[in-house]
Design a protein around this nucleic acid. Sequence first.
DNA 1: CGGGTTAGTTTTGTAGGATAAAAGCCGGAG
DNA 2: CTCCGGCTTTTATCCTACAAAACTAACCCG
Lengths: 245, 245
Amino acid sequence: MGHRRMKPVRAPRRKPGSRVHSELAAGIGRRILDGTYPPGSLLPNEAEWGLMFGASRTAVREAIRTLNGKGLLVSRPKIGSRVEPRERWNLLDRDVMAWHRAALDERTFLLSLQEIRRILEPGAAVLAAARRSPAQLAALERAFADMQSAEISSEAMVEADVRFHLALLAAANNELLVPFGIVIEQALASMFAYTTSHAVHPEQLLPLHAAVVRAIASQSPEAARKAVTALLDDTDETLVAAVEA
Amino acid sequence: MGHRRMKPVRAPRRKPGSRVHSELAAGIGRRILDGTYPPGSLLPNEAEWGLMFGASRTAVREAIRTLNGKGLLVSRPKIGSRVEPRERWNLLDRDVMAWHRAALDERTFLLSLQEIRRILEPGAAVLAAARRSPAQLAALERAFADMQSAEISSEAMVEADVRFHLALLAAANNELLVPFGIVIEQALASMFAYTTSHAVHPEQLLPLHAAVVRAIASQSPEAARKAVTALLDDTDETLVAAVEA
DNA sequence: CGGGTTAGTTTTGTAGGATAAAAGCCGGAG
DNA sequence: CTCCGGCTTTTATCCTACAAAACTAACCCG
């Protein structure tokens, strides 16, 4: 048969973040996250934003609607848009977290993140060992295999590593664990690009992951907990070294 | 003293959820969460939604912008709005979670939630015992005092209880733990309204909380972990009983 | 003089229309 | 058969107008 033509792949396809309302949402969002407009304060009105960004009121309104949905603002007629108290912000939202990190100390953030992993992942491993389905185990093994075949500290390695940890959380069969994990691993992925080349014991990465796979495969909760903890200890070392550098 | 007239208190002040675009966002959001429009499927276009809900295209667009920000959709010219794969949904978002729960089995959800607490809170207690500031301890004690003075299974009790657990997480001094906790406790609060009257050991509620306060006050990480675990064991009992009923 | 009501004003909310830009579709030229 | 250009659908942006909310202040009336 003829080699049916692949998709054109004229891949420029700039991401949907380049839209005017997205720019506005990001611009306003960042100003809130960095404290330019603190909680309780009143934002410029829609017309003023329009002038500032050279955009129409419609675009401004759509941006504000986005921020509204993320819990950063509430708007009321005649009052305007007021910044919500911090505890109502959806800090776990992808965009909000990105704006937050842009305005924040990187090291503190990463250490906080790793601390959460140390709490969450061993517990998830225990559940996963007890409850993983064969398909979930297969997904974990697949991620591990991809790590084995990827070059050290390549992008493919980071991707497979993230997928590995997500597969672990998914195997715990807890509906809420996966969303939590997505938040964490996504944030970690963006920083691995930074620290992946600084691994203290790069040769131990695969054996440590292999131990996790074995424990989950043999359905041994305690072994799984220990294997994941060892893995996190190693990541800790790398992180601490990277942060101090 | 003259009873100075209180604020007019014409308190109807219906929440901002009653706006047209919010109704639309909820209507469309629910249809996505309940599977009417599964991931990958194409939604009706903006004009059609407008007809369905009797709203203008402007309102529809603002609703879609909200859902866009929550990761449920992506929109492209000429294509329309396509439902994103589930792993991109912000399931930890207040609204998304509400729409989700409306379409979901309540029991599974609550058990998942409690399982997460069992993983997260003991770890947080350890950190809190080691790092809590005097002010954070004071906040914890205040919440506990409010629990003591509240009537059993009253609304005030639930509120103080939630505040207690959030104070505990805040005392861990981890930036990310608080957002996680807010998600969890908020969801729990809405269900406590259901189960608060079914407490198996209502008389143990205060002593169990008191033990946590003591451990955090004396900065004993292991004692804190044990106290929180005991507290969660008790909640488990109540939950299991409520679910089976 | 006091108190409540009403008119006015500002800002968001909703509506509706007009263009622009994206991207798939199809037909025609070579 | 391939590539290119025009057609078409749908979102993206802009604009204008009016409605509704909520604060301000003036005003009426006892």
